[in-house]
Write a protein that binds this DNA or RNA. Structure first.
Lengths: 85, 85
DNA sequence: CCTGTATTTCGATTGTTTTCTAATTATAGA
DNA sequence: TCTATAATTAGAAAACAATCGAAATACAGG
């Protein structure tokens, strides 16, 4: 599903992650703590979101900090608009 | 995947169907003719799009005429905007 | 009522996604 | 270098989705 932002957003958990990141960047651990899922599972969801460009991440010592890629969302919004109007 | 518009749009064929319908309503047969897929498969895709409200359909004698549900797309666009901004 | 056309539904198969546990990588600090 | 912490990757099980051919439904016209 790499590269398919629609597919990335089709999962409930991933949309919740996006909403979390909307307020501010979070570390992988902080994100993981919000869900009743194994850290590996959340890590997988983060990699899907990263794979299609909707989120980006940068390392800071041991932690990885994830944040939204606003421009990817704007591009997707544009694509959606073109789809129906 | 019923009710999940993101999931509905995650499939290439379904996005192509949406683009077809953007110009004007089409019968199931006309839609099916545009793809190298069995009619049953296209019918399935139409039912997914219908299930999440992105398209609607009405019967006209033997044929079913599919068209976009613009308001569902607008609602989705709004949801997308809320997701990141 | 029977036949033909349009389309869907059913059931099976194959491929993909979600989720987990266990093992691995990356980094910091003693 | 060794240990601890943060997070990912690997591999497997289970759930889900895409696709097809065959059978079923809906309707129109003779």
């Amino acid at each position: 599903m790499n590269n398919n932002a629609w597919g990335a957003l089709s999962d409930d958990t991933r949309r919740e992650i996006v909403m979390l990141l909307r307020s501010r960047p979070h570390t992988a651990g902080e994100i993981s703590d919000q869900f009743e899922l194994a850290p590996a599972t959340v890590s997988h969801h983060l990699s899907v979101l990263k794979g299609c460009g909707l989120v980006k991440c940068e390392r800071r010592a041991q932690t990885l900090i994830y944040s939204l890629n606003q421009s990817a969302f704007r591009a997707l919004a544009k694509e959606l608009t073109k789809l129906y109007s």
